[in-house]
């Protein structure tokens, strides 16, 4: 209803744009009402999106019986029992594997994507469009279609259940997206700036590091974070190509899903724990991230 008020009141300020103070006050009043409506809507939407996450975090502090009671338990005595059992089941090695695969692949992606994006934006190579299309076309084959060849290859090369297999796959998986993202960030950089640097006698590495990088850093951070999130949450390769040595956190999480018993509270505790590193990384890079994401968007 608030939204409709906002809509119908819109023409009025336009009519009185000629400048009467009363009109302006009217405009601000209507705008304020609209603003409040929009803020409320944003909050409602925000909470609606956040609610499942909040519920997961809350459930992690419940007992198993409270976790699946119907109607849901809202008030309960929090317990750390579930977190204790998650640690008892040995979540740490899985976390280490995840950190390892995620970080190394993200570093590799950035190292490889930077020159590629440079060559596709600032100093475009021949047939840039074709190259870009080639990159993105590697994402078109469903992963399920390649899992058997990958599995057999990993077996033959003695790379099954090896964390390096995941590092390579995650790098390959994220590289096309990273190249595309970073290219759009590089396109934002004014050519004049780089020309000025060249006139001042900067070499290519100097120009890259001292002129280009500071400008596109938010974009690089955003790209790196996206890569981190994708690799951190990756399940399909991890579950199919690892066993005891190289399994990552998502593989650990599904161990709580059983067909004969309910471990909702434990699963929630483990899932909360698993999402913390990504949330923290996002939090730390918040400023860069917002700048980076809007940088690519506004063209």
């Amino acid at each position: 209803m608030n939204a409709s008020t906002e809509l119908t009141s819109r023409p009025r300020p336009a009519e009185s744009r000629s400048g009467a103070p009363a009109g302006r006050r009217k405009q601000t009043g209507a705008q304020r009402a609209g603003g409040i409506a929009l803020t409320t809507l944003t909050w409602v939407l925000g909470l609606a999106f956040f609610f499942p996450v909040l519920w997961m975090a809350l459930t992690g502090f419940k007992s198993e019986a409270e976790a699946y009671s119907d109607p849901p338990t809202l008030f309960f005595v929090p317990t750390l029992e579930q977190y204790r059992s998650v640690f008892d089941r040995g979540v740490l090695p899985y976390l280490l594997n995840s950190v390892w695969a995620t970080l190394i692949s993200a570093i590799l992606v950035i190292v490889l994507a930077t020159p590629a994006a440079y060559a596709l934006s600032i100093k475009p190579v021949k047939r840039t469009q074709d190259v870009l299309f080639f990159f993105i076309s590697t994402k078109m084959l469903p992963v399920a279609a390649v899992i058997v060849p990958l599995y057999v290859a990993a077996q033959q090369l003695s790379l099954a259940d090896n964390i390096w297999t995941l590092v390579v796959l995650y790098t390959a998986m994220n590289l096309p997206i990273a190249v595309w993202m970073m290219r759009s960030f590089f396109m934002e950089v004014p050519k004049e700036m780089l020309e000025a640097a060249r006139v001042d006698g900067a070499t290519l590495p100097q120009m890259l590091r001292q002129v280009l990088m500071p400008v596109v850093l938010p974009g690089v951070a955003a790209t790196a974070l996206i890569c981190l999130i994708f690799s951190w949450n990756e399940f399909f390769f991890a579950v199919n190509l690892t066993a005891a040595r190289a399994a990552t956190v998502p593989v650990f999480l599904v161990g709580f899903i059983t067909s004969e018993g309910l471990y909702w509270a434990q699963l929630s505790a483990a899932a909360t724990l698993a999402s913390l590193p990504v949330i923290l990384a996002g939090w730390a890079a918040q400023k860069q991230l917002v700048r980076g994401l809007s940088m690519g968007a506004v063209k």
């Binding site: 199919n240 593989v251 059983t258």
Partner: peptide, 15 residues
């Protein structure tokens, strides 16, 4: 131990 839900475990073990 490698503990997985029934469907994943069956697929992996079979493969």
């Amino acid at each position: 131990f490698v503990s997985l839900p029934e469907n994943e475990a069956r697929a992996k073990i079979t493969a």
